[in-house]
């Protein structure tokens, strides 16, 4: 197998240039998709037979929650690659994941609470799904704090990577918590392989919003990665060309 393209992309100058080119191609389509999906979710799709208009929160809650899990998985895998292959760029990716990841987690928790109040009757319950998602937020915050407590960026990378890998075990627990325990939180709505439990007339805005969130995260990752590369490559020669 030919890994030349990978090594090329993994070199900081190429990655930097690639991220700068890629960012607008992710950000603007993502924002227009969000606009369309948000309009459709609020005004076009019919209300739910049980929850009436309150279910419209799902169109922001599910994408935020999915991304909180996805971003953590990317962060932990990047951290693992950085740890094994001593790849600086992988550590830079992991470091750029933590801020968007924690924002998505906060959004999932807050929109969930606002949805829970009128439907369940409580802002918060110590339900398995809710509790494990809260642990995910603490993992993100712990990762940030651990990183900030080291002056040496290499040591910060390695310590944070171990934490990210340890926390990875939480991800399948969050995902399957609604299957393993008979809890307050309902089961999954979207299914890639099977049939989704949301009516076809409502599913399109949800899928578009989910894709838009993924692309949005990509755009944010581009900027965050560039900031990380500049911080790590401060004495490199190639910077002169990129900066000017």
């Amino acid at each position: 197998m030919n890994w030349v393209w990978f090594h090329k992309l993994a070199s900081p100058p190429t990655a930097y240039a690639f991220a700068r080119t890629l960012r607008p191609w992710l950000l603007w389509p993502s924002l227009s998709m969000m606009l369309w999906a948000g309009y459709a979710a609020l005004f076009v799709v019919p209300p739910d037979y049980q929850q009436l208009d309150a279910y419209r929160i799902i169109f922001v809650h599910v994408p935020a929650a999915s991304l909180s899990l996805m971003v953590y998985s990317i962060m932990a895998i990047a951290a693992g690659i950085g740890l094994i292959w001593r790849m600086k760029l992988a550590h830079a990716v992991a470091a750029a994941c933590v801020l968007p990841g924690s924002v998505f987690t906060v959004l999932a928790l807050v929109t969930g609470a606002i949805w829970g109040k009128p439907m369940w009757g409580a802002w918060w319950a110590w339900d398995p799904r809710l509790t494990t998602e809260l642990i995910l937020l603490f993992l993100y915050l712990g990762y940030m704090a651990l990183r900030a407590s080291f002056d040496d960026i290499g040591r910060a990378d390695r310590a944070a990577a171990v934490l990210a890998l340890v926390g990875l075990v939480n991800i399948p627990i969050i995902k399957y918590s609604v299957v393993w325990w008979n809890s307050l939180h309902q089961g999954k709505t979207l299914s890639i392989w099977g049939k989704s439990s949301i009516d076809p007339s409502m599913v399109m805005p949800l899928l578009v919003m989910l894709l838009a969130f993924v692309m949005f995260f990509g755009a944010i990752l581009c900027d965050g990665l560039c900031a990380q590369i500049l911080r790590r490559e401060r004495h490199a020669q190639w910077l002169t060309k990129q900066v000017q």
């Binding site: 750029a96 968007p100 924002v103 959004l107 500049l230």
Partner: peptide
């Protein structure tokens, strides 16, 4: 409930765009 969820999500996403761009 619905509008506050959409509003807060928008605030979060706009925050991310500007804060991360500023870091760079």
């Amino acid at each position: 409930y619905v509008w506050s969820c959409y509003g807060l999500t928008m605030v979060g996403l706009v925050f991310l765009i500007f804060v991360v761009r500023r870091q760079w």
